[in-house]
Each structure stands twice: as C-alpha cells, then as structure tokens.
Amino acid sequence: MNKHVLSVLVENKPGVLSKVVGLFSRRGFNIDSLAVGVTQSPDVSRITIVVSGDEQLVEQISKQLNKLVDVIKIRTFLESDCVNRELILIKMKAGKSVRQEVIQLATIFRANIIDVSASTLTIELTGDSDKINAFLQMMGSYGVAEIARGGTLSLERGAHSL
C-alpha cells in the first residue's frame, strides 16, 4: 500500500475541520497524519492528510471530500513525490534578483532549502511559532507563493508522560 498525500484547500471557518475529519471516520478511511494551517489567503486553510491505500481508495476519498461545500480544492500526490516536513513549508517567488537574499535569510533562521526551480525556492523550517512568524514576516516582503503550515507537536519535558 502506498502512502498518498491529499492537499485540501478549505474555507477557513469554524467547524470545517470536523466536517473533513468526520468524513474520514464515517466512511471508514484511515488517516495516517493530518496537519492544518492557514494559507497566504487568510480565508483559506490547507489541510494536508496522509493516507495509506490503493488508487481507488484515494480517488474515493478525494471525491467524497470534494462534495463538502467548504472544500475548495483537492490535490493528491504519492508521498514519495513531494517533500514532507513538519511544521512549515514555504514556497518563495525567488527569481534571480532576490534569490541570494532569500537564501541568506534562510541560513540565518537555520532553515533548509529543499526544492529549487527557475522561479521558486521551497524552504523548510521547524521551530516554535515565534520563530516561524518572524521568518514569515521577513519573507513577506519577497513574495510568498504558498504556505503549508502544520500544527504544533508537543511532548512534556522530563520523565513524566501522559
């Protein structure tokens, strides 16, 4: 069974996530992982869902999700076809003129550049929300193509666990 990534753009409104997640449980689809965050448009969120299954299952999940009125757009990928990192992926419109500046800023923030094309740079960054917000603020003046931002993962310090 292959792992597939569903990239789902939804209305950034209360209750939308439970509609999306509820659909998985009631149709008997399993979620391997889920990450939600707002995109460059404040009224649009991106839900990134990883599922295991065959093409037919992924097609059915995608079609069922598409029926939700609050779902704007869906794309599915094989997991091996895309970069997958925790917390934040940011794709910069970085043509020749600004490319060096963007790379330098990424280095200062200890971010990794994980994908390059003639016109874009895709940067991966992990860290707390302050660090990410600060980085986003810096990148804002260069032209952000898109952002996928994951939820924060937390574990308690020390020996005590839940």
């Binding site: 209360p14 209750g15 439970s18 509609k19 509820g22 659909l23 009631r26 029926k67 609050d70």
Partner: peptide, 12 residues
Amino acid sequence: GATIPLCKHNYL
C-alpha cells in the same frame, strides 16, 4: 455538529 454526517451542508 450532530448533523455533519447526514446533511449536504449546514450552517450555524
């Protein structure tokens, strides 16, 4: 919340 699985869409 209760009618998510049995509505085409809903609003609060």
